[in-house]
Design a protein around this nucleic acid. Structure first.
Length: 500
RNA sequence: GGCCCCAUCGUCUAAUGGUUAGGACGCAUGGUUCUCAACCAUGCAAUACGGGUUCGAUUCCCGUUGGGGCUACCA
């Protein structure tokens, strides 16, 4: 059985690259009926962000990536608020709650001679690094404490000296492993640092924690970003020292800024919550991000989460970094907005309408209200790329904006003509019953009427549309009339006529 | 500096030891049209470079160049 995990650090909000890593891990687990687990790696207290865990969870759940085990989101227990909970046999799933476990394995490694106490002060290490850089040497720990006698070291500790624990990398040999994406990769052991595995504050570093937890939690496939590739030999060595079988590794290509550097905050929005706020649909973001570095081979572009789970394979993940291209995301979002059922579109738009003060609350009052919103919002559905654009685009339907009378005149027409056409068409439209007031009927009948009258389309339709929308660019007049219904439409026409 | 990874249109990518190197986004032009959007049609645009191997290489090998990652008691 395939067991994967996503193991973010709460040093910030969920990153778009993290979303893709989580997605791929989730997909691999789902397609094999395996398990996807979420673990929180909060061993860095200095960069810890208080609401990081909750943000990561909410973003993941928003995207539909729900963990089977580990840290989960619980929105039931506390009314109106969500909280993180843990579920599963291999917990706790938050590393700061597992300190004794890491301590135990660090002790074991020391006892076996695979790790050692290090008393080097921060200043010594900094100076060492500085010298190495000046001499253009490879930077790294010089092994100063590697051969300190264990009894002497324990004496120092008993005396209250601060210490860290470093792993002992072999001085010879090569570590070779098969990466599921990159194939065979090898590193010379002598070039790998004696990495600190337990910090002087008693917290483990990533390297110890990740190895211990992945093993204890039964992870079979580690899927993570390429930035971890060069630390794999350390991890493999720890597996060997601990007598464990290493899992399979897959290192994903990085997500890039348009200048091809690692995707960063400096050059745009990188947190999933930024995209949620802007009104991107989870379906769109997932589809887009799935296709960054992976492609199933056909010409189909639109894939649901379920379809992705069927099609996805690590073999088809590319090796080169992928530039995060906002225009393509926008396209995906438009596609998905159009595919939404009208009801669903309204439901998703609600919070944005409330933000834009078009509704006092993000709620539907009753069925009639819902029907009305469906029609009105439908006016702009094909014109927006994100939901956050909707309130400004559709405001005219809630409240007729003020506009100049000149706007009512079509470019190839005159004020005189516009006024007459408007008055006549108003009279004509007023004869329609409420039952007859439908888009298709209005469009067809009015079209015929315009022909009979011998007017050009623009002469009538431009002023008609402007009097309904109050703006230069807008949906077509018949759609608006249909959405606004007869009474409101006629009022707007009268308002327009009065402007001349 | 050292180590590692990577290299097809501007971007995401497909393909094969032999193809007119395909698709999507974007862009441009035209069509449709009362405006905007949408839609339709067409177009522009790529195998980084140099050596091999081969009848033939974009594909396999080597090198160069370029890009990226890592090089912390951060993850």
């Amino acid at each position: 059985m395939i067991i994967t995990r996503f193991a973010p650090s709460p040093t910030g909000y969920l990153h778009i690259g993290g979303l893709r890593t989580a997605l791929y891990s989730y997909l691999i687990a789902k397609q094999s009926n395996g398990k996807f687990l979420l673990r929180i790696e909060d061993t860095d207290r200095e960069r810890f962000v208080a609401d990081g865990v909750l943000n990561i969870l909410k973003s993941l759940y928003w995207a539909g990536i729900i963990p089977d085990e580990g840290v989960k989101l619980d929105c039931e227990s506390i009314v109106g608020e969500c909280a993180a909970t843990q579920e599963g046999e291999s917990g706790p799933y938050v590393q700061s709650e597992r300190l004794e476990i890491y301590q135990k394995y660090a002790d074991e490694l020391i006892e076996k001679g695979f790790a050692y106490y290090c008393f080097c002060a921060q200043e010594r290490l900094e100076e060492l690094r500085k010298k190495q850089q000046e001499n253009k040497q490879a930077t790294g720990y010089d092994g100063h404490c590697r051969e300190v006698d264990i009894k002497e070291a324990k004496k120092k500790i008993a005396n209250g000296e601060k210490y860290a624990v470093r792993m002992k990398m072999p001085k010879n040999g090569v570590t070779i492993f098969q990466d599921l994406i990159r194939g065979e990769v090898s590193f010379k052991n002598e070039l790998v640092d004696d990495q600190v595995i337990l910090k002087s504050d008693g917290f483990p570093t990533y390297h110890l924690a990740v190895v211990v937890d992945d093993h204890l939690m039964g992870i079979t496939h580690i899927i993570r970003g390429e930035e971890w590739l060069s630390s794999v030999p350390k991890h493999i060595q720890l597996y060997k020292y601990l007598g464990w079988e290493p899992p399979k590794f897959a290192h994903l290509p990085l997500l890039l800024n348009s200048d091809k550097s690692k995707l960063s905050k400096r050059q745009g929005d990188v947190s999933v919550s930024d995209y949620i706020k802007k009104g991107y649909l989870p379906e769109a973001l997932i589809n887009f991000v799935a296709f960054l570095g992976w492609n199933p081979g056909g010409e189909k572009e639109i894939f649901s989460l379920d379809e992705l789970a069927k099609e996805f394979s690590l073999e088809k993940v590319g090796k080169a970094g992928a530039v995060f291209n906002l225009q393509k995301l926008d396209w995906y979002n438009q596609q998905y907005i159009r595919r939404l059922a009208p009801r669903e579109f309204v439901a998703r738009a609600l919070p944005f309408l409330a933000d834009g003060k078009l509704l006092t609350e993000p709620k539907i009052e009753n069925e009639e209200h819902e029907k009305r919103l469906e029609k009105i919002l439908g006016l702009e559905r094909e014109r927006i790329t994100t939901l956050s654009e909707l309130p400004e685009m559709i405001r005219f339907a809630f409240e007729l904006p003020d506009y100049e009378s000149e706007l009512l005149v079509w470019k190839k027409s005159s004020a005189e003509e516009a006024k007459n056409a408007l008055s006549e068409v108003k009279e004509y439209l007023n004869k329609f019953s409420v039952q007859e007031w439908t888009k298709n009927n209005l469009e067809q009948k009015t079209g015929e009427w315009i022909k009979e009258k011998g007017y050009g389309n623009g002469v009538v339709l431009w002023p008609l549309r402007v009097s309904l929308s109050g703006q230069k660019d807008s949906p077509g007049p018949f759609e608006i009339m249909d959405a606004l219904e007869k009474e409101e439409s006629i009022i707007r026409l009268e308002t327009a006529i009065a402007k001349f």
